[in-house]
């Protein structure tokens, strides 16, 4: 007897589904399709907040506000979260906003250091003046509390072994009074922790970039204004990427490649600390710096096609289930 179509659907081998999923994801990725997302209010709010800090710093050059970017994720979620930290840092450096970064996990120290310096290099940011990397501020809850008074007492040295009191940036920005925004990019429940301590106890504004898996957990904090904004998953990253690209075009222009190529010249006599980054870009590095400007949007094209594939699978499976039950009832 011939197997009915619904039985075939219901007993489809998982391996076939995986292979089709692979193809569905790969086509947009290889064709380099990009997705143009509509920017959601919760993402735009983060952008506006950073623009607000920029405006404040323009009118108060002697008492600037900085942002604290906390890398609260490990490499296992970097596919979703790296584009967020990159976009936030690009925005901050483009607007000359002082940046403090640190990593909440021991296994993400290298990741946090690499991304911070990678983006700083694109804007000729000087270590110690424009940005600092504080390493792994263990234990995190003590570090968050230490920021309430003077973080330099808790983090005596930065990641590179410089005394905190020797870093010009930390002499201006060493407690919450001079932090305009805390951005926690996380694949865990760390944003809740930041809200509990930095927002509830010190009234600091918190923005989060989170993996899609955790996003639903944090919406209640948006509704109560305990968080000012959220980038949820790759989609949130793509939205912020789009906003930063528009700003980059306004400030730098269309030709980012040319801008990066001419950023450092051999006659540059600025004392670059090569321990932090070496000035100049090789062709390979240039290609990478350009491609990271649309990582999330390229990924979202694959994401959209995989969603479409899963919707089709859900409809087919439900139809199969429905017809199978109907056939059984008839019998």
């Amino acid at each position: 007897m011939r197997t009915p179509w619904y039985d075939k659907i219901m007993s489809l081998d998982k391996k076939i589904l995986y292979v089709i999923m692979f193809i569905v994801v790969m086509i947009p990725l290889l064709a380099k399709w990009t997705y143009n997302p509509a920017v959601m209010p919760e993402v735009k709010d983060i952008y506006d907040e950073i623009e607000g800090i920029y405006a404040y710093n323009q009118s108060h050059p002697d008492t600037p506000q900085g942002i604290l970017v906390s890398f609260d994720y490990s490499p296992s979620t970097n596919a979703e979260l790296d584009p967020m930290t990159m976009s936030i840092l690009r925005h901050a450096f483009m607007r000359n906003i002082p940046v403090i970064t640190w990593s909440a996990f021991p296994d993400s120290i290298d990741l946090a250091k690499t991304i911070t310096t990678y983006i700083a290099k694109e804007f000729r940011a000087v270590y110690g003046q424009d940005f600092v990397f504080m390493g792994y501020p263990y234990p995190m809850n003590a570090a968050v509390i230490a920021f309430g008074s003077d973080v330099r007492n808790f983090l005596v040295k930065d990641f590179y072994g410089n005394l905190s009191t020797d870093l010009p940036l930390l002499n201006k920005i060493y407690n919450y009074k001079s932090i305009g925004l805390i951005v926690t990019v996380s694949g865990t429940s760390y944003p809740r922790f930041w809200v509990t301590y930095a927002n509830t106890l010190y009234g600091k504004k918190i923005a989060t970039g989170t993996t899609a898996v955790s996003a639903a957990e944090f919406y209640p904090f948006l509704q109560t204004d305990q968080m000012i904004g959220m980038m949820g998953g790759l989609r949130g990253a793509a939205e912020y990427e789009k906003l930063v690209e528009a700003l980059e075009i306004t400030i730098i222009g269309d030709d980012i490649e040319r801008y990066l190529r001419n950023l450092y010249s051999p006659e540059d006599d600025f004392p670059w600390d090569t321990k932090i980054f070496a000035p100049g870009f090789t062709d390979e590095e240039l290609r990478e710096h350009l491609s990271t400007r649309k990582t999330a949007r390229t990924g979202m094209a694959s994401q959209a096609s995989s969603h479409f594939y899963v919707i089709v699978l859900i409809i087919l499976a439900n139809l199969g289930y429905f017809f199978k039950r109907r056939a059984e009832n008839k019998r």
Partner: peptide, 14 residues
């Protein structure tokens, strides 16, 4: 959201 997250990881690797 969970599905989106898992696919994002796969996309990241690819």
């Amino acid at each position: 959201y969970t599905f989106m997250g898992r696919i994002s990881l796969f996309i990241g690797r690819m």
